[in-house]
Each structure stands twice: as structure tokens, then as C-alpha cells.
Amino acid sequence: MKPRVGIFGFTGCAGDQLMILNLEDELLDLVGALDLKSFTMASSAVEDSEYDVAFVEGSITTPKQKQKLEEVRKKAKLLVAIGDCAAWGGVQASCNGILTVGEKMKEVYGDEKVWEIYESKPLSAYVKVDFVLPGCPIEKEEFLRAAASLLRGDLPEAVDYPVCVECKLRENGCLMLEGKLCLGPLTVGGCKARCPSLRVDCIGCRGVIEGEARVKSAMQVFKEAGFKPDYVRARLRMFAANYPEILEVKG
């Protein structure tokens, strides 16, 4: 029997779902191997179902989303967070702990309470997440490999090493040594060091390596390199503001 799969999106740009649709050469094989019950971005034909795997994109920012996420969790054997919003709260979390939701809403709409919304949080703030496919957006190849592992009945192999590994394997000169604020050492690899290979410093779009990233050490190294703390803090917060050690960084 084919595994029943649902793909859902909450607050985010839908770019991760788009990356799945962008798997043009493999898309037919993919939908052929799965029993796709729900993928509203691709098709309005949605079937109410239990799921063997639910892929969930986006951060949770409203009570309705929280309720829907909890429903999906109840119906799903495995829940996989896809993309940085689902994994860390995304760019919309970058001011968490600095500005309140009310302050942000007043800034944009002139009123503190237009709707009831939450500070942007990852899925794991509300439900158990079985696996994370990180990135902004996710890597197509990584999604395919994860789907293959899930089809075999295994959890995929998580990338738990920094961007620096793939950067060195490509024999790139280190951008930090060239005086650039590169977040490679703190950031989950798996992107084949795409940006540093083009001599562009890593902005951390694949999120921080949970439990491994040496944030304090990096702050010291960046400080010695002459970067202003508020600039470093803003860079760190872009994709991983909800990571406790980054939330604590002073500007």
C-alpha cells in the first residue's frame, strides 16, 4: 500500500511547497509512489484522511493555525517540518523578544489589536516534530532523498554538520579569513555551500545546528574581527531567532 501523505502550509511564502512542485523531472515518480491526500498548493482535490506522513511548511502565528496543526498531528503517524519557518519560525520571527506582537502590529497597521496573532514560533513549540528538512527554501534533492527513506520505512539521515564541511570539500578559501561575516560554522550544511562557493558569505538560511552551534564562540570571533554586535545579532536572527542562544544575544 502506498503511504498516505498530506502537505500543508502555514505562515510563510509557500516556497517549500513550490520546491516540491519544482521537482519537475521527478514529480511524476514522486506522486506515483505516494497516495497524496492533501496538497492544496497543487490541487484543490483534498481528501480527509489519516496520514502516514504529513509535511508541514510555515510557522504558527494564529489560534486557527495552532488548531489546524494539532488536528494534522493527531491524524499523522509522522510529522515532518519543511523549511525554516516550520523549523525555526522563519524571518517573521527575527524580532521576537525585541518587539512585542502588539508593537509590530501598531507599527504596520496603526493599531495594536487588529487580529489575535501569536509571536512567530516553529511547529515544535506546539506539537511533536519527528523530522526537520531545513532551509529557505528546502533543497529539492534533500526532499527527494528524505521521501525515499520514508518510503523504505526509515527516518531520513539528518544533516548535522556545518556549511564549512561542504565548503572545505569544495576547496573554497574561508570567507571569515577574508573578513566577511559568514555564518557557515553555525549553519546546517546540505546546500553544498552554494553561496560561499560563489564567494558570498552564508546568511544562515538553513538554520542553526541544534545543540551544536557554537554561538558564543562565534560572537567572540566576530567581535575580534571588528563587526558591530547589533549587525551580528540581526544576521543571526534572520533565520534562527527562536534558537535560545541566539535569542539571548545582545545587540
Partner: peptide, 13 residues
Amino acid sequence: TAKCLACGTCNLV
């Protein structure tokens, strides 16, 4: 090791 970023570069080179 206070400044070590655990990036693996020392091994990889």
C-alpha cells in the same frame, strides 16, 4: 577551545 567553532576545518585540511 573557547573560540573553537567546531566547524571541522582543521580535520578537513
